[in-house]
């Protein structure tokens, strides 16, 4: 593995993932300071792509950069450097030229959730497991600000940090075949939202009418890593009307 110690800023090091991807490492543990930094570098590259840049994949502590070495090497003579090394140096220089800023962090996004009942069939199970009442669970789940550490698992699925540890509940032993889109669940010490219908083993405590994934929109995905969200309890009777508003008169 050709990881290197680092000279610049917040970059820990890098490693190659095959000959067409390099992963930049920002740290070695989950840290709320990292996702905004990753997003910062991702934006830098988006606005000033190097020749051959294909795409980036952000995760907890890493940004994987996929590139075409043929295009890169056709554009630049990189000498004896490996392409991975060249890209790492390139990013280090880009970062030094840019004043580090987190200006893009917008307000905390509020996600309305109908807790319990048909929308959160496992709320009672979580209550039994934690020894808390349903209303106490809702209170604790809605009183924290969650940071989106990364997106993954499903299109538009956020990995959230910040769940009150007292709400931790193991996932189901047998995954459910169909978890409806918008379901808010708890799995171990994590909480998350299913952006689309899929199989899943999380304990479902509620559901949001907010579309997290809508390919018809100019911005098809509501959430992104580095962003902060809060959950807000919503009356069950408002679910359908809210959903209608979000989707307009679309027939889907």
């Amino acid at each position: 593995m050709d990881a290197l110690p680092l000279n610049a800023n917040d970059l820990f090091g890098y490693y190659a993932l095959g000959e067409k991807a390099v992963t930049i490492v920002f740290g070695d543990r989950i840290d709320p300071a990292i996702p905004p930094k990753i997003r910062f570098v991702e934006n830098l590259l988006k606005h000033a792509p190097f020749p051959g840049l294909l795409t980036t994949v952000a995760a907890y502590t890493t940004l994987c950069i996929q590139y075409d070495p043929f295009v890169l090497k056709s554009a630049y003579d990189i000498g004896a450097q490996s392409t991975a090394e060249w890209i790492f140096d390139h990013i280090s220089i880009l970062m030094q030229q840019q004043p580090s800023q987190t200006e893009f962090m917008t307000d905390v996004l509020s996600i309305p959730v109908c807790y319990g009942g048909e929308y959160g069939p496992d709320l009672e199970h979580v209550a039994a497991h934690t020894g808390l009442s349903a209303s106490e669970i809702i209170k604790r789940h809605t009183s924290t600000t969650y940071l989106i550490y990364m997106m993954g698992f499903l299109p538009g699925f956020p990995y959230l940090g910040g769940l009150d540890p007292s709400l931790a509940t193991p996932r189901k032993t047998t995954p459910q075949q169909k978890v409806p889109a918008g379901s808010v669940g708890i799995a171990g010490a994590q909480t998350g939202i299913y952006p689309l219908e899929s199989p899943g083993g999380w304990q479902l405590i509620g559901r949001t009418p907010l579309p997290l994934f809508d390919p018809e929109q100019a911005s098809p995905i509501l959430l992104r890593s580095g962003q902060e969200i809060r959950f807000e309890a919503m009356d069950h009777s408002h679910f359908d009307a809210y959903r209608q508003d979000c989707y307009g008169n679309k027939t889907s």
Partner: peptide, 10 residues
């Protein structure tokens, strides 16, 4: 589809 990998889209 390369544009949405950071959003979890394969």
């Amino acid at each position: 589809r390369l544009d949405y990998l950071s959003f979890g889209v394969p």
